[in-house]
Design a protein around this nucleic acid. Sequence first.
DNA 1: CAGTTTTGATGACATAGATCATCTGATTTG
DNA 2: CAAATCAGATGATCTATGTCATCAAAACTG
Lengths: 230, 230
Amino acid sequence: MANLLEANCLLCRQKSDVFNHLNDNELDRVNGCRVSIKYHQGEVIFKQGSPCHEFVCVTSGLVKIYLEGEGDRKIIIGFARPVDYIFVPGAFSDKRHHFTAVACEETTACLVEVDIIQELLRSNQQFASGFLTKISEQSIRLFDQLTSFTHKQMPGRMADVLICLAQKIYQSNPFHTSLSRQDLADMSGMTKESAIRILKTFKDDQLINTEGNTIEILNMAMLETISRNG
Amino acid sequence: MANLLEANCLLCRQKSDVFNHLNDNELDRVNGCRVSIKYHQGEVIFKQGSPCHEFVCVTSGLVKIYLEGEGDRKIIIGFARPVDYIFVPGAFSDKRHHFTAVACEETTACLVEVDIIQELLRSNQQFASGFLTKISEQSIRLFDQLTSFTHKQMPGRMADVLICLAQKIYQSNPFHTSLSRQDLADMSGMTKESAIRILKTFKDDQLINTEGNTIEILNMAMLETISRNG
DNA sequence: CAGTTTTGATGACATAGATCATCTGATTTG
DNA sequence: CAAATCAGATGATCTATGTCATCAAAACTG
């Protein structure tokens, strides 16, 4: 059985909130020009600085989105899971990507030309409104990350990351992740070594348990306290 | 002579880009329900966490926009100058303010009910599109700030701030500012003491000159190098 | 399957930058 | 005008965290 999610935008819509505002006609237009692509783990979907021609909608797998700094330093600012559309702010300003998207595991995504989406934004105000909401929420998340990175120290930041992974990204408590320690470090604005050390102290303190890439939060209350106290 | 900028949205439009997309009729609607308020230095225009009822458009003065963290730590994420409309992401999601806006000097601003703007966003797609662009640019600026804060050390961050003030905010080279050293610190993610120290080293190195609240950049090229090298 | 590369884990060390304390001059206030 | 408050300035610590080096285990790869 083929992956239903990829078969048609009309089926996919049931999963994605933004596209709920499009009628069947409009979705057919999107469906007609979409291209479904399969990415292997570690493959770049689009790269910071490159021109942005398509919108990307993740239909299976997991995509990490990060800012590239000097050297090989990264800041992971978010993830896209099925069925998430990746909001690309450059599409509305300088037509460039301002972050890089990479598949964390086997991933399929649909590419839709920017022009089509922008046409729909113009003709369908409910769709546009949904878009505005999504962008806004993304901004708000950035505020939180900026505050966390600037005001909290490492334990607080790592607590934030672990809570986010369990509650938002994987939505399960012992969760298995394809993210490396380096990725966790990039999510929390520290070096890999520091990330490993913090995870170890959390483990020693019975806050979490780690078995390779499986992490279990044992004491959520305490983690939340650590997050709050920075 | 009264301040013309405040007299009427139609005149004000000439200054503000977003409102260019509204026709005279629509602007009249905005004009009809707007309230112009005068704020003194240091007064709060709206407060992080509070419900957001109005959009704020700054018609004179200078407004700083910052995130409030634990304790009294702040992160200044931007400024609004005449004629800037302050984009409030909460207006499209949870109807709450996610940052605080404070007048840095004598400031006048027009308040317009959120509902009116949202109605216009629905009926005028060009207006909505201009909005989308503005929000996107704000996001992109946040990316830069997040990268700067996380990857650069203090001299690089302060260089960023000084360049931004001279080129974007005040658009003049010896510039006089109503911002305190604490504000500069809040813009660059460090303590007031550190900000003062960095400014002093810059001054000692002939990169800038400071006389109270007047700052002159003497060696822009070097500052840019410092900014780039973090 | 031997060899190479990557990832995780840890220790030793260096330092950027926060914190705390003090002092000055400026500005506000009773 | 004295007193009090506040912003700027500066030095003395202390510490969180980055850097570097090493090593083991796992994962590729020819």
